[in-house]
C-alpha cells in the first residue's frame, strides 16, 4: 500500500495561521498583542503614576507631559489607559473562565447522557438566559458586594448558559459519531470518552464562542464599572474612566474619547477574531 498523497488543507492543520492570513484578523491580532503587551508593560511604559493626583492640572489638555491630557484629579489619562488595559485583559478572562468552568462540564454531561439530566439542566439554562443579563449581574453583585472580581464572576455566571448550550449542542452531534461508539467498545469510561474523545472534537465551536464572549464580557465590565459596581477608585478601567468623563462632560467633553476608542477597538478585536475563527473552522468542518 502506498502512502496517500492527499494534501491536507492548511486550515485543518493550523487554524491560527489561516486566521492570520486574513488582513482584518491579522490587524485585530496585532492589536490584541499590543494590548496584552501594554497591559504587561504598563509599569514600565506608563509616563506617570496612574493614581498620582495633581489638582493644579485638572482637565489639562493634551501636552507633552500629558500625552492624552489629565482627568478631574489631574491624573495622567494615558497612564490610566495603560493600567486599565490590565483590567481589560483580566476581567473578561475571569468571566469567560467562570462561564466555561460551569458550562463546559454540564454541557458535556447533558449532551452525552441526554434524558432527565439534559432536560433539567436545559430548563435551568433557559431560565438563566431569559433574565436580562446586566440586571441579573447587578443582582449578583448586590449579593456578593461591589468589586471587580465579584462583578466578573457575576457576569461569568450569566454567561454560563450560553457556553452550556454551545457545548451541549456540539456534544449531541459528536456523540452520535461512530468513533465515540468505538471508544466505548474499547473500554473507555464515560468520563474518558467525554474529555479525551468528545472535547477535542467540539473545541472549534467552543473556541469561537469563548472569543466572542471575551468582547461581550469586556463590555459588561465597562458597564458595571461605569455605574461604579466594577473596579473601585482609584483603580482605573475604561468603563470607570468613561463614567468619570460622563460626569464631567461640561468641563471636559473630549475626555470620553481615549477610553471610548480603547474600548471600541478592543471589543471589535475580539469580535473580528471570533468571526474569523468561526469561518476558518467552519470551512475546516466542511472540507
Amino acid at each position: 500500500m502506498s502512502a496517500p498523497t492527499t494534501t491536507i488543507p492548511a486550515a485543518r492543520r493550523r487554524p491560527l495561521g489561516a486566521v492570520l492570513r486574513r488582513p482584518s484578523s491579522a490587524v485585530a491580532f496585532a492589536f490584541l498583542v499590543l494590548l496584552v503587551g501594554s497591559a504587561i508593560a504598563a509599569p514600565v511604559i506608563a509616563p506617570h503614576d496612574p493614581d498620582a493626583q495633581e489638582l493644579g492640572n485638572r482637565f489639562a489638555g493634551v501636552s507633552l507631559t500629558h500625552l492624552a491630557g489629565a482627568d478631574e484629579f489631574g491624573r495622567d489619562v494615558l497612564s490610566r489607559l495603560l493600567y486599565a488595559a490590565r483590567i481589560a485583559v483580566t476581567a473578561p478572562l475571569i468571566s469567560v473562565g467562570v462561564a466555561v468552568l460551569i458550562g463546559l462540564p454540564t454541557g458535556l454531561w447533558a449532551g452525552r447522557r441526554r434524558g432527565i439530566v439534559d432536560a433539567v439542566s436545559g430548563r435551568l439554562a433557559d431560565t438563566l438566559l431569559s433574565l436580562p443579563a446586566l440586571a441579573s449581574a447587578l443582582a449578583i453583585v448586590a449579593v456578593l458586594g461591589p468589586g471587580l472580581t465579584n462583578a466578573m464572576v457575576a457576569v461569568g455566571i450569566i454567561f454560563s448558559p450560553t457556553v452550556f448550550r454551545v457545548v451541549r449542542g456540539a456534544t449531541l452531534s459528536v456523540a452520535e459519531e461512530t468513533f465515540v461508539e468505538s471508544a466505548t467498545a474499547i473500554g473507555c469510561s464515560t468520563r474518558r470518552t467525554l474529555w479525551v474523545h468528545i472535547l477535542p472534537n467540539i473545541a472549534a465551536p467552543l473556541l469561537v464562542q469563548v472569543t466572542i464572549l471575551m468582547g461581550v464580557a469586556l463590555l459588561a465590565e465597562a458597564s458595571l464599572s461605569f455605574i461604579g459596581l466594577g473596579v473601585q477608585p482609584p483603580e482605573a478601567s475604561w468603563g470607570s474612566m468613561l463614567g468619570a468623563a460622563y460626569r464631567n462632560q461640561y468641563d471636559a467633553p473630549y475626555a470620553v474619547v481615549p477610553p471610548g476608542i480603547a474600548l471600541v477597538l478592543t471589543v471589535l478585536t475580539f469580535n473580528t477574531l471570533g468571526d474569523a475563527l468561526r469561518d476558518v473552522l467552519a470551512g475546516r468542518r466542511a472540507s
Binding site: T178, F179, S182, T184, A185, I186, G187, H197, P200, N201
Partner: peptide, 18 residues
C-alpha cells in the same frame, strides 16, 4: 469491551477519532 472482546466497525474513517 476492548479487552477480551474487540470490535471492528464498518466505516474506518468515522470509527477513528479525527
Amino acid at each position: 469491551r476492548g479487552g477480551p472482546v474487540g470490535a471492528v466497525f464498518q466505516e474506518p474513517m468515522s470509527s477513528l477519532n479525527p
